[in-house]
């Protein structure tokens, strides 16, 4: 089961060699962070801590949003979706379970990005902040995976779900307040951002990195967890509705 799970995970994620994983999921997000950190330095919008911590949490989106989309989209693309839906097991549990390895992957990427960028840019993070930071990154990754799964569910109806996931990843950079302080964004963008994953996890992570205790960051963590739960319910509902609709109209494999 473990070996099969690992192989399926690697295959569904389209990476069969370590070079793909390193290039796409480690190097890419690290340079994304460096790009915004240097831009922030030049414009003097915020300090390095703001960009490093925020973008480290955001770095999980690549694995989680695309992972969630791939979890559904690639089953359809490779013609295996019918087999999955014929399974006697609960498809809701099956698909929601798919989000877990992506969340774990997102946490790994976020931890790597934070460590590497802190070393490169010379940011000192107190050791006491690490458990809180890990918790914030884990919560953000999980919420983001369910968000990705929600987008993936749309893949049961749409011909090209990659357009949505590509645009969604770009929008997360703008709306979550990771790169532009909320004070610099219009109110409606902040309002939308409040209902997106990463926004509250990044805020919680920044509080931990600044030396705040758990109680100070807990409300933000709770909001992030609630948003993750909301997307999990939404993903499950959409998957159920689209599955029933696809069966009714015999359009499961129609692209």
């Amino acid at each position: 089961m473990t070996v099969g799970g690992v192989i399926a995970y690697r295959a569904l994620f389209n990476w069969t060699r370590p070079s793909i994983f390193i290039g796409t999921l480690l190097v890419g997000p690290l340079f994304q962070l460096l790009f915004f950190a240097y831009l922030g330095r030049q414009l003097q919008v915020a300090d390095d801590r703001f960009y490093i911590v925020g973008n480290a949490v955001l770095s999980a989106t690549l694995a989680c949003v695309f992972g969630g989309t791939l979890a559904v989209g690639n089953e359809r693309r490779y013609g295996t979706l019918g087999h999955v839906l014929l399974s006697p097991r609960s498809r809701t549990a099956l698909f929601l379970g798919r989000a877990l390895p992506y969340a774990g992957n997102g946490l790994l990427i976020a931890a790597f990005t934070l460590s590497a960028s802190a070393l490169m840019l010379g940011l000192r993070i107190p050791l006491s902040a690490l458990p809180g930071l890990m918790l914030a990154m884990a919560t953000g990754s999980l919420a983001c995976s369910f968000f990705g799964l929600t987008l993936g569910a749309l893949g049961l109806r749409l011909r090209d779900v990659w357009v949505i996931s590509n645009v969604a990843v770009a929008l997360l950079m703008l709306l979550t307040g990771v790169n532009v302080p909320k004070a610099g964004l219009p109110g409606w963008m902040v309002a939308i951002g409040n209902y997106l994953p990463i926004t509250h996890a990044a805020e919680a992570a920044r509080r931990f990195a600044a030396g705040s205790d758990f109680a100070t960051a807990a409300p933000e963590l709770a909001r992030e967890a609630l948003i993750g739960l909301g997307y999990a319910v939404l993903a499950a509902a959409l998957l159920k509705i689209f599955e029933l609709e696809s069966r009714r109209t015999a359009s499961l494999e129609t692209l």
Binding site: N14, T16, S19, I20, G23, T24, L34, F35, R41, Q42
Partner: peptide
């Protein structure tokens, strides 16, 4: 390369950064 994606995905931000498309290269 069987999977050129590894290189393409890794090259987007570095070239944006190093070429000074938005960030002046003087701050690098």
């Amino acid at each position: 390369m069987r999977n050129a994606n590894a290189l393409t995905n890794a090259l987007e931000y570095p070239i944006w950064l190093v070429s000074g498309m938005l960030v002046p290269i003087t701050v690098l």
